[in-house]
Deep mutational scan, measured.
Amino acid sequence: GAPPLPPYSAGGREVTMKKGDILTLLNSTNKDWWKVEVNDRQGFVPAAYVKKLDSGTGKELVLALYDYQEK
């Protein structure tokens, strides 16, 4: 199953993602919540729920390892 959710501390809205989604990583300075862009929406997802990909394009991409439903 998915890892436990860290307390929400990102101070911005969250976004929903599905397992297998490829998201653009915008900011990973917060260790628990990373800012991503998905379907032209920006928001935060739990860092433990995604994995960085080596895209080779200069853009940082992450793979959704679990479904996440915004609150």
Rank of each mutant, 00 (worst) to 15 (best):
G43H: 04
V15T: 06
A64L: 03
P6Y: 03
D40L: 09
Y49S: 03
D32Y: 15
A48F: 04
K51H: 09
V62K: 00
S9D: 10
E60T: 14
E14T: 15
V62D: 00
Q69S: 14
L5F: 06
P7I: 08
L63F: 08
G56A: 13
V50N: 00
V62L: 10
D54R: 09
S55V: 13
Y68T: 02
E14P: 15
T57D: 15
D40K: 11
Q69V: 13
S55P: 10
K51W: 07
R41P: 00
K71W: 12
G12P: 06
Y8L: 10
S55Q: 11
K59S: 11
G11T: 12
S28C: 09
T16L: 06
L63E: 11
E60M: 12
L26K: 04
G11Y: 03
D32F: 15
L63C: 06
V50G: 01
L25N: 01
G58A: 11
Y8F: 12
G56C: 10
E70P: 15
S55T: 15
K71L: 12
K51E: 08
G56Y: 14
W33Q: 01
P4W: 06
N27R: 05
I22W: 03
N39P: 05
R13Q: 13
P7R: 08
R41E: 13
T57C: 10
A10M: 15
G43D: 01
G20K: 02
P3E: 05
A2I: 12
K71N: 14
K51Y: 06
P6T: 02
T29C: 09
Y8T: 15
R41W: 06
A48W: 05
K35E: 13
L63Y: 08
E37N: 05
N27Y: 05
V45I: 09
W34V: 04
P7H: 11
N39C: 10
V50H: 00
I22L: 08
P3L: 06
D67Q: 03
D54L: 11
K31E: 10
V15I: 14
K35T: 08
V62S: 02
E14Y: 15
S28K: 07
A10E: 06
V50F: 04
N39H: 10
A47T: 04
K59M: 11
D40R: 10
L5K: 08
E14R: 14
S55A: 12
T57S: 15
K31D: 13
D40W: 08
K18I: 07
R41M: 15
D32N: 07
T24D: 05
S9G: 13
A10P: 15
A47M: 04
G20W: 04
E14N: 13
D40Q: 12
L61R: 08
N30V: 04
V50Q: 00
N27H: 05
L25E: 00
G12R: 07
D32Q: 08
P6S: 02
L53D: 02
D54Y: 13
S9F: 10
V38L: 15
W33T: 01
P4K: 08
L65K: 04
K31L: 11
A47W: 02
S28I: 06
V45C: 04
V15A: 05
D40N: 15
K18T: 08
D32L: 10
T24R: 12
S55E: 10
K35Q: 11
V15Y: 05
G43T: 04
E70A: 15
Y68W: 07
K71Y: 15
G11I: 14
Y49P: 00
P7E: 14
G1E: 15
G1L: 08
K19C: 05
F44A: 02
W34A: 02
S28Q: 09
E60I: 15
T16N: 11
A64V: 08
G12H: 09
L23Q: 01
E14D: 13
P3F: 05
D21P: 01
D67R: 02
L65G: 01
Y68V: 02
D40Y: 10
K18M: 09
V36D: 00
K19Q: 09
N39T: 08
P46H: 01
Y8R: 10
L26F: 04
Y66I: 04
K71R: 15
G56E: 14
I22N: 02
K52D: 04
A48S: 13
E70V: 12
Y8K: 08
L23Y: 10
F44K: 02
W34Q: 01
L61H: 06
A64R: 01
L61K: 09
F44M: 06
